[in-house]
Simulated assay, not measured.
Amino acid sequence: MNFECFHEIAQWIINSRTIVENIEYEESPLKPPDYNIIPFNQLDIYKDTDAEVDILAIAMMTNAPRQVNTSHGMKSLVQDIYVIDSSLKVLRLAMWNKFVHDECSEICNIIMEKPIVLATKIRVSSYNGLSLSSRPTSVFTIEPFLASAISLRAWATENNLLLEETIAKNLDRPVASTSGSSTDPLVKISEIVETLKSIPAMTV
């Protein structure tokens, strides 16, 4: 076996006395990201603080992008997306500047499908009672591959009529909290999780 070391050609000779062993590398399994997802009905304590919260919600509707003048005299681009979680509380999520061109555009393209959005490092403010806003360090993932997102999608599917009613009620008052009313009973996410646990794992 020939190899080059420091530009010099060398040779290894392997014979019957050579011991060759397979070295097994112990690789620690990759851990999924740890998100501290806060339900909408628990966001009040984070209002107007420096806290960076994570949310998981369904995007219901969007407004057109608009330019605004900031307190520093700069023009910024902002677009509002109205999101809802299983508490049926509708909140305005203001996405600023770079997020308008990328994530907002993608969400708008599939808004009729009610995409699930994972948003991290979000600011919570008391604007209009309670609202959300992106930070420069925020990260948005559309349709994340998370167990909690699967549960939320299942809940949304089971309660689609209630979500449609909530959307209709909030078209004129998008930031109002909605308790909702429907003849169909609400399906709790905890019940969906238990159902998912009872499904046998798929084998390949």
Rank of each mutant, 00 (worst) to 15 (best):
residue 42 Q to S: 15
residue 70 T to N: 04
residue 143 E to C: 07
residue 40 F to I: 13
residue 193 V to F: 06
residue 22 N to Y: 02
residue 119 A to F: 02
residue 99 F to R: 08
residue 53 V to K: 07
residue 181 S to R: 04
residue 190 S to E: 15
residue 131 S to A: 15
residue 124 V to Q: 05
residue 123 R to D: 10
residue 78 V to S: 04
residue 187 V to A: 09
residue 31 K to T: 12
residue 127 Y to G: 03
residue 33 P to N: 10
residue 73 G to Y: 01
residue 113 E to M: 07
residue 75 K to Q: 13
residue 20 V to W: 00
residue 150 I to R: 10
residue 59 A to G: 12
residue 65 P to K: 08
residue 34 D to I: 12
residue 108 C to M: 13
residue 202 M to V: 12
residue 142 I to A: 03
residue 197 K to D: 10
residue 117 V to C: 09
residue 128 N to M: 15
residue 24 E to R: 14
residue 71 S to Y: 03
residue 62 T to H: 04
residue 46 Y to I: 05
residue 82 Y to G: 05
residue 16 S to N: 14
residue 19 I to H: 07
residue 146 L to W: 04
residue 82 Y to V: 08
residue 165 E to C: 06
residue 64 A to D: 05
residue 22 N to W: 00
residue 199 I to W: 01
residue 149 A to D: 08
residue 30 L to N: 06
residue 80 D to E: 12
residue 188 K to N: 09
residue 151 S to N: 12
residue 191 E to Q: 11
residue 109 N to G: 06
residue 74 M to R: 15
residue 58 I to W: 01
residue 155 W to H: 13
residue 29 P to C: 11
residue 12 W to I: 12
residue 14 I to W: 00
residue 76 S to G: 01
residue 31 K to S: 15
residue 75 K to W: 00
residue 102 D to G: 02
residue 54 D to L: 14
residue 190 S to I: 14
residue 187 V to R: 14
residue 170 N to S: 15
residue 175 V to F: 00
residue 69 N to V: 10
residue 91 L to E: 02
residue 70 T to G: 07
residue 146 L to T: 10
residue 168 A to W: 00
residue 37 I to W: 07
residue 7 H to G: 06
residue 133 S to Y: 01
residue 186 L to H: 08
residue 119 A to C: 11
residue 65 P to T: 09
residue 77 L to H: 02
residue 15 N to I: 09
residue 23 I to L: 14
residue 186 L to V: 15
residue 18 T to R: 09
residue 110 I to W: 00
residue 146 L to K: 13
residue 63 N to A: 12
residue 28 S to E: 14
residue 126 S to R: 07
residue 178 T to I: 08
residue 97 N to T: 09
residue 20 V to E: 04
residue 107 I to L: 08
residue 96 W to D: 05
residue 124 V to E: 03
residue 87 S to Q: 07
residue 102 D to P: 00
residue 70 T to I: 03
residue 42 Q to I: 08
residue 29 P to A: 13
residue 29 P to E: 05
residue 167 I to Y: 05
residue 142 I to L: 07
residue 59 A to S: 11
residue 95 M to I: 14
residue 46 Y to A: 06
residue 84 I to V: 15
residue 34 D to Y: 02
residue 58 I to R: 04
residue 47 K to S: 02
residue 2 N to E: 08
residue 81 I to H: 04
residue 64 A to K: 08
residue 192 I to W: 02
residue 116 I to Q: 05
residue 81 I to A: 04
residue 193 V to H: 09
residue 83 V to P: 01
residue 68 V to F: 00
residue 183 T to Q: 06
residue 201 A to S: 12
residue 171 L to C: 04
residue 150 I to H: 04
residue 179 S to D: 02
residue 102 D to S: 13
residue 33 P to G: 08
residue 107 I to V: 14
residue 54 D to S: 15
residue 96 W to K: 07
residue 65 P to A: 11
residue 111 I to Q: 04
residue 95 M to E: 06
residue 8 E to S: 14
residue 21 E to W: 00
residue 36 N to R: 15
residue 131 S to Y: 02
residue 137 T to P: 01
residue 139 V to L: 10
residue 25 Y to V: 14
residue 192 I to V: 14
residue 13 I to W: 00
residue 193 V to Q: 07
residue 153 R to E: 09
residue 185 P to W: 03
residue 42 Q to Y: 03
residue 18 T to K: 11
residue 15 N to G: 12
residue 12 W to Y: 02
residue 194 E to R: 11
residue 12 W to V: 09
residue 180 G to K: 06
residue 10 A to C: 07
residue 2 N to K: 13
residue 138 S to N: 05
residue 123 R to Q: 14
residue 146 L to E: 11
